[in-house]
């Protein structure tokens, strides 16, 4: 059943790489990279999820369970969730850097078209 999540992550990645490869607007290319980052988050969390599991937080356990039983029971993988958290935080920094580069390109070349930027440079 978790296969649907993997398929959605693959679909998001394909949409992002389609945007990066076919669009000429630099901001659209950065948006495609954001889509690929989102597919990465979804893939990592789908890997972390096990069937019928709950969050790996021991405070306020579900009704009829204790923290000890929850720790030995069925929880999602916290290591992959921390990878995902790191990926989110790095993703916003990378997006900020890309957007700064795009703004500098727009200020320097007075255009936002990837092909025309390449023509002017060559």
């Amino acid at each position: 059943m978790i296969l649907g999540n993997y398929l959605a992550a693959v679909t998001l990645f394909c949409l992002g790489i389609y945007t990066v490869l076919t669009r000429r607007n630099l901001l659209k290319i950065v948006m495609g990279m954001s889509l690929m980052e989102a597919s990465t988050y979804l893939f990592l969390l789908s890997l972390a999820y096990r069937n019928g599991s709950t969050a790996p937080v021991l405070l306020t356990p579900p009704h009829g369970q204790t923290p000890q039983r929850l720790a030995h029971g069925n929880v999602a993988d916290p290591v992959l969730q921390n990878f995902c958290l790191t990926a989110i935080v790095i993703g916003v920094a990378v997006t900020g850097v890309f957007l700064a580069v795009v703004v500098r390109i727009a200020q320097h070349y007075r255009t936002l078209d990837a092909d025309r930027v390449r023509d002017m440079r060559g």
């Binding site: 969050a55 405070l59 306020t60 579900p62 009704h63």
Partner: peptide, 10 residues
């Protein structure tokens, strides 16, 4: 969903 999964953390 927090009420559905019975986790107050959500």
């Amino acid at each position: 969903f927090a009420a559905f999964a019975d986790r107050a953390t959500y």
